[in-house]
Design a protein around this nucleic acid. Structure first.
Lengths: 362, 362
DNA sequence: TTGTATGCGTTATCAA
DNA sequence: TTGATAACGCATACAA
């Protein structure tokens, strides 16, 4: 008998449980048992069935399984067009991390588009009601984000990456400890001998931006550098151009910073450009630390605070799977505790833009 | 009666056809008919049914529909971790374009991960056999890519973005006219008065890289600049560092180029860095044109050749939907012709890095 | 240890 | 114009 005889793929209709059953000369139930309760089946029978499962290349039909279980194994995710002006985001990494995290639990990401947060919530509710997705992941949840409340109101399961300013006890979220990131940047720079450490960030009002600014400020105070750095805090929009302009403003001060911490790599690139045009060599005359560790940072040898996105993805996914499977089949209450680790620490990646000791006091 | 009475979302079990039928006092078949063959239902009945559909917020269950139709409305897509070294790719844009394109046909993207092309093909076959996805999109198909043949052999429907060196008549693909892109860059530079136009690209062997090089070369010859530019063609890996080194090599020539066309934005960034460190002002002393129009290009005011990714996404998706739905239910042969437009023209985005006239002959 | 019966929500067929 | 029946592929409860 020909080993590993492959069915005619051209006209291949997927074999079903029944096909396997007929081939093995058993009832379809026995085949099902072989798959789900192998202990109940006599070894001999099991082997015969398994043989034909392999031979026919049988794969259980997910659609039928999901219908039967009344539970989709899809996690909905809204993919947005790239924000103009911003450099590469870390969005790619997050998406890959999520997909990878879902893999173990045999869940897949389902991508959908929506014009805004409101439409996103509505689309999610529709998708959920139609059984297309079991739950949703919200990316980049900001201070005044309306999506959590909207989904809460619609009874749609979700987990957020990021969090709103209010009501964070009402839904599940995972976030990165942003203050810790900028604080680590300051610590590093202080350790290198810097004392005038500027901050280039977003205007107040944005949660993430505010938290990053807080981290800088707290670390500055902790190191007793408040006086030196008080006036070195500038804010503007998140673009290279704005970063350049803000850096110019700082460099024009009578006592300019010898190091700059920025809220994003995009702003950091702006600072780099300003420094170059100002005649400063980055890494020697001035130190720069960005945030996000985008590919751009690596390419430009820019030190940057890296978010543990892969970890975030895993936490988000496991939290979500806990939530959705709890609905489907309530679990014993004292089960694997959902990870309470919801605030994840970033890590500073040191590159040449900040590796050298501080320049002599000018 | 309370208008728009919303069901208790907390314990909301999705209403089914039967729920609507009971509420409206008809059989479930009539409800189905209202949705799929409204003409067959008496107006009065139809309105009553529609009323309850709205009232109960009924949404047809996609899983059940798909099982019944034996056809998933999912398109599989392998998401990879970001290639190290490369700057932001245009991958985000492509993914969004695909998702958006699928929207109209009520199809969604299903993301999965795989360690390499081989694993990708296997995962796709599994997904297909299990009814999880109807077809697949292959991203970045290169010269010696094994995926098309693998999927062909497995009988898995797919459409490629990019194409192999051989056998492109055996599968459906959509590609960008890469030579046209670099040629447009050369045309633009010649028009600005440049005569020594260098090329910084990938080593031979990569389809995309070769095609971009071809476009540069052909345009150079067409403009009668072969003698001036013959030696200004350098190749290396796709990284900022390599770009910088190659640019140095060019600038060190006795007759250095006044303009440089690169195969990618990543390389262009390297060229920009080299130019700056060489003391040249980009846009004045030297012109640079990148490829891909990544966010980085926009941020750095770098001219770049933009691929019509959104269009690619639409073509890929419509081709794929044609193919898969043809399997599900063979269509009248003389239907909407599948778009034969498979080679799409890129567009040069001119920014300050190449906007100025060529510097006086040095 | 194995098999029979039932239902998940939908739609196509056909009969009333 | 409407409704009863069957079937998509699977898994569970239960019977043999």
């Amino acid at each position: 008998m020909a080993e590993q005889e492959r069915p005619d793929v051209a006209t291949a209709v997927q074999p079903t449980l029944v096909d396997v059953a007929v081939a093995a000369g058993v009832s379809r139930q026995t085949v099902s048992n072989v798959l789900h309760a192998p202990g109940r089946v006599r070894a001999e029978t099991r082997e015969r069935v398994e043989h034909f499962i392999a031979k026919l290349g049988y794969q259980p039909n997910r659609v039928a399984q999901d219908l039967r279980a009344n539970a989709s194994r899809m996690i909905g995710y809204r993919i947005r067009p790239l924000a103009p002006g911003a450099l590469a985001s870390i969005h790619d990494r997050f998406l890959h991390a999520l997909a990878e995290a879902g893999r173990a639990a045999d869940h897949h990401l389902l991508l959908f588009t929506a014009d805004d947060g409101r439409a996103e919530a509505e689309a999610a509710a529709r998708l959920r009601r139609s059984g297309g997705a079991a739950g949703f992941v919200l990316y980049d949840v900001t201070a005044d984000d309306a999506r959590p409340d909207a989904l809460l109101g619609l009874g749609v399961p979700f987990v957020a990456f990021g969090r709103t300013a209010q009501g964070t006890d009402r839904y599940a979220w995972v976030d990165v400890d942003n203050p810790a990131g900028t604080a680590a940047a300051v610590d590093h720079l202080v350790h290198r001998g810097h004392r005038r450490i500027g901050y280039v960030g977003w205007p107040a009002g944005d949660t993430v931006g505010d938290r990053r600014a807080q981290g800088w400020q707290a670390a500055i105070e902790r190191h007793g550098l408040t006086a030196e750095c008080r006036s070195l805090d500038v804010r503007g929009e998140d673009s290279v151009t704005a970063g350049t302009q803000m850096a110019y403003a700082l460099l024009a001060r009578p006592e300019p910073p010898t190091a700059v911490v920025t809220a994003t790599d995009t702003l950091a690139v702006g600072v780099l450009r300003a420094a170059q045009q100002w005649g400063l060599e980055v890494g020697r005359d001035i130190a720069v630390v960005g945030f996000d560790d985008t590919p751009t940072a690596a390419a430009l040898d820019l030190s940057s605070v890296r978010q543990p996105i892969e970890l975030v993805g895993r936490h988000v996914m496991s939290t979500l799977l806990d939530a959705t499977s709890a609905v489907a089949r309530p679990r014993p209450s004292a089960s694997t505790a959902p990870s309470t680790e919801r605030l994840l620490a970033p890590r500073l990646i040191i590159r040449s833009s900040s590796a050298s000791p501080a320049p002599a006091h000018r």
